[in-house]
């Protein structure tokens, strides 16, 4: 009887814990995919707040009115408002590019937007049989990213060939020599490189001429001729946050900031055939989408 009483008390305590999901913009597909899967996999009641058309004052009022115990902030805007107005609360975040620039208090948890380098490299190694050296175009802004990539690649027997660009060289950068010395090229989210359309087009056309595959991190690059796109699976991120909050409520230990656990792989079959690149049959069972 006493046990039943404690179980009832515990259940009530869990129900009393209020949770608010703040969506930065419900028109953004990747935010919605995460929110939707979070809802399907989270076993407690929660409310959702879309702040895309709200003023700062309206958001502030909504947060004070709700005053939730836990917030799941989807996107940078949602995180910034939660962090500003109710910083004392547990805040979980996802879908924020480069979360490391955020100043995080001890009650912050989240899933990064970017995959662990190791996951990308293992997938590349599983799919491309003849890729041993990968060229990476980068500037000083992404030097740390390339250093990490080189370290993780070394453990898998892959060599990273860094191609350093700067403000002066980016416009007329020629990639032929680098492509000659690489089996594939990898496009990372380097701001200097991506802000220069000529440089991007230059890389893709040179790669096409030399029949070298390009591996990118966003589906947008398929239209330029990327052979493979490896990115985080957004629905899995929503499920991951649900699992993290459940773990915390049940006082189970977990990593506070995690990499995405699921991958989304788009394979450009046409481009692979044009390049004549050797791909293992694993691609057919691993790819999320095969573009014919």
């Amino acid at each position: 009887m006493r046990l039943l009483f404690f179980i009832s008390l515990f259940t009530l305590a869990l129900q009393a814990h209020t949770i608010l999901v703040i969506n930065s913009n419900s028109d953004v597909k990747k935010y919605n995919e995460a929110v939707e899967e979070f809802g399907k996999n989270f076993n407690h009641p929660f409310k959702t707040l879309d702040i895309s058309n709200k003023s700062s004052n309206e958001i502030k009022k909504a947060l004070y009115d709700e005053y939730p115990d836990t917030v799941y902030a989807v996107g940078a805007k949602a995180y910034q408002y939660a962090n500003e107005y109710i910083p004392e609360k547990d805040i979980y975040f996802s879908s924020i590019v480069d979360w490391k620039r955020l100043s995080l208090a001890s009650n912050r948890y989240g899933v990064s937007n970017e995959l662990h380098n190791g996951m990308q490299l293992i997938l590349i190694k599983s799919l491309f049989t003849s890729v041993n050296t990968i060229g990476v175009v980068h500037s000083k802004y992404t030097q740390n990213m390339v250093d990490d990539l080189s370290r993780d690649a070394g453990a898998l027997g892959i060599k990273i060939l860094p191609i350093l660009i700067d403000e002066a060289s980016v416009e007329n950068m020629q990639f032929d020599t680098a492509l000659n010395n690489s089996d594939a090229m990898m496009v990372i989210s380097d701001p200097l490189f991506l802000n220069n359309e000529n440089a991007v087009k230059n890389l893709f056309s040179s790669a096409k001429k030399q029949k070298k595959p390009i591996i990118a991190y966003h589906e947008l690059f398929i239209q330029y001729g990327a052979t493979l796109v490896i990115s985080a699976d957004n629905p899995t991120i929503g499920r991951q946050i649900a699992t993290m909050i459940e773990s915390n409520l049940n006082e189970r230990s977990m990593e506070k900031i995690q990499y995405p656990a699921g991958t989304n792989i788009v394979f450009n079959k046409k481009e692979a055939e044009l390049n004549g690149v050797e791909i293992t049959s694993d691609i057919l069972s691993i790819a999320t989408e095969i573009r014919e």
């Binding site: 190791g118 599983s126 699976d233 459940e246 773990s247 990593e255 656990a261 991958t263 691993i286």
Partner: peptide, 21 residues
Amino acid sequence: ELSVLRVPKEIDALMSVGFGM
């Protein structure tokens, strides 16, 4: 004491253990 996190592929499930998710 185990809670399940569904991922798209078996290789994701395995890599998640390797990388701490």
